[in-house]
C-alpha cells in the first residue's frame, strides 16, 4: 500500500491495514483493518484477550506488528518517531512521578515534544485549564485524586496537539460524576480540537453515549465495525422486557401483538409477570438508539389499563456485544 492512499482523504487521520501480531505463534491480531476520521470518536471494544491492548500498542508505536501497515495523518508506520509526534495517548495504567507538580510534568513533556521551556509552560497552563486542573497546577501530583490524575493524563496526551488521541479505559475507577465529566472532556477534544479519538472501554454505555463509530474485536479480528447506529441495528434482538402483574399477562400479550412493529411477545422468560417483547425494525426502519418503539409499547399498555411495574430495554450496544461475542465463542 502506498502512502498516498492514506492522504487521499484529508479528514482520515488513521488508517490501519491488515495488522497482524503473534506472541510465540499465538496470534493476538489477525488482520486488523479500520479507519478513523478527524473529529470523530471511535469506540474500541472487545472482551479481555481480544487483542485491544496489542492493537493500541501497535498503533501507538510501542509495539511492532509482524505485518501490515498503518498511517497516522498520512505518516506511515515505517516512521514511528514521526508518528509519536502526531498522537496523544492515555494508557490504561499510566503512572506519575508523585514528587512533581502538574505544571512541571506537562512542561517537561511539552519540551520533549519540541517546545522551549517558556512555551511549554504557557501551553501546559492552558491545558490544565482545559481539563479543569488550573487550581491544582502547582500541587504535587501525589496529592491528586484518581479523577484528577486521569484528567492530568489527558492533558499530557494533548500536549503536542495530537491528530489522533488514544484513551485506554479513561474512566476506570472514577465515580459517576467523574466519569461523566471525563466523557464530556473526550467529546470536547474530538469536536473542538478536531482530533480523531480512539476510546477503549469496558463500559459499553459510555461508548454508546459518546462514540460515533465502533470496532468490536474478538480473538484478534474485527467482528463488527461501523457507526454505533449501524452496529446496533445489526442486532437480532431489539427487545423490551416489561414487568406487569401476573393477572395482566394475557391482556398485555394481546394488546402488544396487535401493534404493527411487534415481531413476538413471550412470557416464558422464567420470571413471573415479565414479558419479552421482540421488535421488528425492518418494517419501519426506526433507530433503536432513539427508542421511539419502546415508547409506543409502553403507551399501548398504559392505554389498555395495564399497570407497568418496571421495564428494561435490550438491543443496545451491550446486547450486540454480548450477542456477537457469544456467537464467535459458539
Amino acid at each position: 500500500m502506498s502512502q498516498s492512499k492514506a492522504l487521499n482523504s484529508p479528514s482520515q487521520v488513521l488508517l490501519a491495514e491488515d495488522l497482524r501480531k503473534s506472541y510465540r505463534r499465538r496470534p493476538a491480531l489477525r488482520g486488523l483493518s479500520f479507519s478513523l476520521q478527524a473529529g470523530r470518536i471511535l469506540g474500541f471494544l472487545g472482551p479481555n484477550g481480544a487483542g485491544k491492548t496489542t492493537a493500541i500498542r501497535i498503533l501507538t508505536t510501542i509495539l511492532e506488528s509482524d505485518s501490515g501497515i498503518f498511517f497516522v495523518d498520512g505518516i506511515s508506520s515505517e516512521y514511528p518517531q514521526r508518528i509519536r509526534g502526531k498522537i496523544g495517548v492515555l494508557p490504561e495504567s499510566l503512572g506519575f512521578p508523585k514528587q512533581i507538580t502538574g505544571i512541571e510534568l506537562l512542561t517537561y513533556f511539552g519540551q520533549l515534544y519540541g517546545r522551549t521551556e517558556n512555551e511549554a509552560r504557557t501551553h501546559s497552563a492552558e491545558l490544565l485549564e482545559e481539563v479543569g486542573l488550573q487550581e491544582r497546577a502547582n500541587s504535587l501530583v501525589g496529592t491528586y485524586s484518581r479523577g484528577m490524575r486521569q484528567r492530568l493524563g489527558i492533558a499530557r496526551a494533548l500536549i503536542n496537539d495530537p491528530t489522533v488521541v488514544f484513551l485506554d479505559e479513561p474512566t476506570l475507577g472514577l465515580d459517576p460524576r467523574g466519569q461523566q465529566e471525563l466523557l464530556l472532556l473526550v467529546q470536547k477534544i474530538a469536536r473542538e480540537r478536531y482530533a480523531g479519538v480512539i476510546l477503549c472501554s469496558h463500559l459499553l454505555s459510555e461508548i454508546e453515549d459518546i462514540c460515533d463509530d465502533v470496532v468490536i474485536l474478538m480473538s484478534g479480528q474485527i467482528i463488527a465495525s461501523g457507526s454505533v447506529t449501524e452496529v446496533v441495528q445489526h442486532s437480532k434482538q431489539n427487545m423490551l422486557r416489561v414487568h406487569i402483574p401476573g393477572s395482566f399477562v394475557l391482556d398485555a400479550q394481546r394488546t402488544l401483538e396487535a401493534l404493527s412493529h411487534i415481531k413476538r411477545v413471550s412470557s416464558g422468560t422464567g420470571t413471573a409477570g415479565w414479558l419479552a417483547v421482540e421488535q421488528d425494525h425492518s418494517t419501519d426502519g426506526a433507530s433503536p438508539k432513539e427508542q421511539p418503539d419502546n415508547n409506543r409499547i409502553l403507551e399501548a399498555l398504559i392505554r389498555a389499563g395495564i399497570p407497568i411495574l418496571s421495564y428494561e430495554s435490550e438491543g443496545g450496544l451491550k446486547d450486540v456485544f454480548l450477542q456477537l461475542t457469544d456467537e464467535v465463542i459458539k
Binding site: 509519536r84 494508557p91 503512572g95 513533556f109 520533549l112
Partner: peptide
C-alpha cells in the same frame, strides 16, 4: 514498575 516509562516512550524523543 511505576508505569511511568510508557509516557516517555510515547514521546518523539530518540
Amino acid at each position: 514498575e511505576r508505569s511511568t516509562l510508557e509516557a516517555l516512550l510515547l514521546t518523539p524523543a530518540n
